[in-house]
Design a protein around this nucleic acid. Sequence first.
DNA 1: GCGACAG
DNA 2: ATCTTGTCGC
Length: 202
Amino acid sequence: MQERLRHRVQLSGPDVSTARTAVGLDVDYTGDRIVAAAVVLEVATLDVVQTSVAEGETTFPYIPGLFAFREIPTLLAALDGLDEAPAVLVCDGQGLTHPRRFGLACHLGVITGLPSIGVAKTPLGPYEMPGPKRGDRAPLLHDDGGEVGAALRTRDGVKPVFVSVGHRTDLDSACALTLRLTPKYRVPETTRLADQLCRRSP
DNA sequence: GCGACAG
DNA sequence: ATCTTGTCGC
């Protein structure tokens, strides 16, 4: 399915770093249940615009590379609960930095048609350490050598996050947006708030 | 065949 | 993801 859908990914689109709103997505597991949260923020102020939660059952195991199939159904349900479509999805996982170049962020982007980026806390493969300052980045290369993402430092001297394009945007815009969403912590506010929301819902 | 890798 | 002991720093 990933091989079949990957050609639908669009590698250019609006500059998501200047989008009015961004939605953070995350899930929490409790036994065989899964809770997904979507938190829409105003990018300029980081104020919460709206939140949505959905619950479901885990029907797919965790398999690196097939991660999206585990979380997508419930994440889509959470997105459906929003009144208006956000300008960009900020996913907790990989986009193009994936064995078949079709990680969760690409999958969600293609399904919804919305611009999306992936900001993962851990990479799927090896990476070069970027400089120590916030904003420093090092390219993430695919097995074939193509640049598919960046290890981006969001805080001085703290482990970087791993940014990649999901759909309808470019890597520079994705990194710029990530930096706007990380004024204080390593992980984007969107992801942090979504994480807090879904882990207090059950 | 072994290793290993989003959450 | 979750669990777990200790350490460092604001």
